[in-house]
């Protein structure tokens, strides 16, 4: 494991705390009707998200899915415009046109989250293709779930990335369920082992609640991609604490309570806090990170609250680059 600068370690914890605080607040706001529609939280999966995003540079590309807030936060996108987007305000990162499911912040390489399971995987693959053709040293990463791992387009994309040696990372967030469906009931074999069929390395991070374990695995994949040695499939084992989406109430108990308890004991933020304390971070400093994250989320909500809703005419902008082409 590489020695990481204290600033990097601190930043990892801060980003995980940001995601936790942001999603906990978003969950409340959905239940109070403050956020329209629903959201899918990454609570419990922070190590997997931040370990991956921090292994990328700001200039690198990423696409994501419906569990969508952690990815841009992990990539360094400011919280205010993200929160404003969830609420549907004019100052949202997508001007209120995308919402939770379609966050994108091109300024940090976030090419967009997707409401269609599996659909954004080839987008990141295409970004990797342009890095290759333009020879600009950037890499691309696609986040997708264990459910999306059974979409055909993943394998079309892996094949293309493999045969073209694209600087690409396929990152499977295996939280072991696709909505109510346990992964093992719909998935033949192991996801990471499917990489072998495409002649690319496939790695499973069993310790997916350990941000450093994820960071190390993805960093290796990034180094390989940047060196021109092609794509990697990384499967990270993790767990979501909340229901599939906020407000969703399912009649059947598809996850048992013991399982959840066991995962709660491996909370990524608690684990990393212990690690940081063992590395000489003071309790005060660690509490300070927590306070910072909460304050940032408060500020993001205040920013959203103070922002206007979009002018109605905005609904008719940005279909094409020229307004005349729209009917």
């Amino acid at each position: 494991m590489a020695e990481l600068a204290r600033d990097t370690l601190r930043e990892m914890q801060l980003r995980m705390l940001r995601i936790r605080a942001f999603d906990e607040r978003a969950s409340k706001m959905v239940k109070r009707g403050h956020i329209p529609g629903t959201v899918h939280t990454s609570i419990g999966q922070e190590a997997q998200v931040v370990g991956a995003t921090m292994a990328l540079g700001t200039g690198d590309y990423m696409s994501g899915n419906h569990r969508s807030h952690g990815h841009p936060i992990g990539k360094g996108s400011p919280l205010g415009p993200l929160m404003a987007e969830l609420v549907g305000k004019a100052t949202g990162v997508c001007k209120g046109k995308g919402g939770s499911l379609h966050l994108a912040d091109f300024a940090v390489g976030s090419l967009g989250e997707s409401g269609i399971v599996g659909s954004s995987i080839p987008i990141a693959n295409g970004a990797a293709l342009s890095s290759k053709v333009l020879n600009n040293g950037k890499v691309a990463l696609a986040f997708f779930g264990d459910g999306a791992a059974n979409q055909g387009v993943l394998y079309e994309s892996m094949n293309m990335a493999g045969v073209w040696d694209l600087p690409m990372i396929f990152l499977c967030e295996n939280n072991q369920y696709a909505l109510s469906t346990p992964a093992h009931t719909v998935t033949s074999g192991n996801i990471f082992e499917r990489a072998a069929g495409f002649g690319m390395p496939g790695i499973r991070v069993e310790a997916g609640q350990d941000v450093l374990a994820v960071y190390d695995a993805v960093s290796e994949a990034v180094a390989r991609a940047r060196a021109g040695d092609g794509p990697t499939l990384v499967e990270v084992m993790t767990y979501r604490y909340n229901e599939h989406s906020e407000g969703l109430k399912l009649g059947t108990d598809y996850r048992n309570a013991d399982e959840r308890e066991a995962w709660l004991k491996k909370d990524p933020i608690v684990l990393f806090r212990q690690y940081l304390a063992s590395q000489g971070f003071s309790e005060e400093e660690l509490d300070g990170l927590q306070a910072t994250a909460l304050a940032e989320v408060d500020a993001a909500v205040a920013f959203s609250d103070a922002s206007p809703y979009p002018d109605l005419s905005v609904a008719f902008d940005d279909l094409y680059t020229d307004k005349e082409s729209a009917a």
Partner: peptide, 9 residues
């Protein structure tokens, strides 16, 4: 994508 992302793409 262009529309959903508020013209970023």
């Amino acid at each position: 994508n262009r529309y959903m992302f508020g013209g970023q793409a």
